[in-house]
Simulated scan of single mutants.
Amino acid sequence: MGMSVTISAAAGEDAEQILKLQYLCYQSEAALYGDYSIEPLTQTLDDLRAELGRGCVLVARLGEEVVGSVRGTVDDEGTAVITGLIVHPRMQRHGLGGRLLAALEERLAGEWAAKRYRLATGQRSEGNLRLYRKWGYERTGSRVVTRAFTLVTLEKEARTALAASA
């Protein structure tokens, strides 16, 4: 008998599992850009715990195991910045990333009054870009970080998010 994945708010005791999963998930990004000093691989447990207290953090669980997570904060103008969307490699390509994204969008619009969503990923991260386009995000800009890495910014309005999840 299989278990189903549940999505809920992260608790303080989830920080260590989220950090370990983040480290695992960002290995492929680091390899893609040849840079293992990226922030998700160098973030400390204390920094992550502080981040958990500042915004909305969701986790996907398979039993007791955290197999996915996503984070978001909303600024004074109603722009939600979404970061840290991770899914365990063995759970990828089954729609879990989209479920996490939709759950976070819904929570940010409802509880945090988000009017629009913004996220960013590397220009070579085709899987991420494909997922975000599928969920209605459109490219709004880019910033060269290093010769090998350009950060692509994507956005969508909150009403688009509600229609896409309907």
Rank of each mutant, 00 (worst) to 15 (best):
K20R: 15
R147M: 07
C56R: 03
A60N: 05
R139V: 15
E138P: 00
L104W: 01
M1Q: 12
V152L: 02
R90W: 06
E29F: 09
T121N: 10
A114M: 07
H88T: 03
I82K: 00
V144N: 08
A11K: 13
T146R: 14
L32T: 11
G63F: 08
V145R: 12
R143H: 12
T83R: 15
S69K: 04
A80Y: 02
Y132D: 01
C56W: 00
A161S: 12
Q17L: 11
K115W: 03
R118K: 09
M1Y: 10
G68D: 03
E13L: 10
V66M: 10
L62M: 13
R49G: 04
V5N: 03
R130S: 13
Y132Q: 04
E157L: 10
A30S: 11
G68A: 07
E111N: 02
Y23N: 14
C56Y: 00
G136T: 05
E106L: 03
L100S: 05
T146I: 09
M3G: 13
V5E: 05
A103C: 03
V87A: 03
G98F: 01
E106D: 05
L58F: 06
E126Q: 12
I7T: 01
Q43W: 01
G127P: 06
V87G: 02
L85Y: 05
T44E: 10
V74E: 02
R61A: 09
R139S: 09
G55K: 08
V67S: 02
D75E: 06
P89Q: 07
Q92R: 13
S4E: 14
E65D: 13
A10M: 08
L48C: 10
R130H: 14
A10N: 02
R90F: 06
V87P: 01
G110V: 06
E16R: 15
V70H: 09
E106I: 01
T153W: 02
R49N: 09
A9N: 10
A114Y: 03
G95N: 03
H94T: 07
T140R: 01
T83M: 12
I18L: 14
V59C: 05
G63N: 07
E157H: 08
A163F: 11
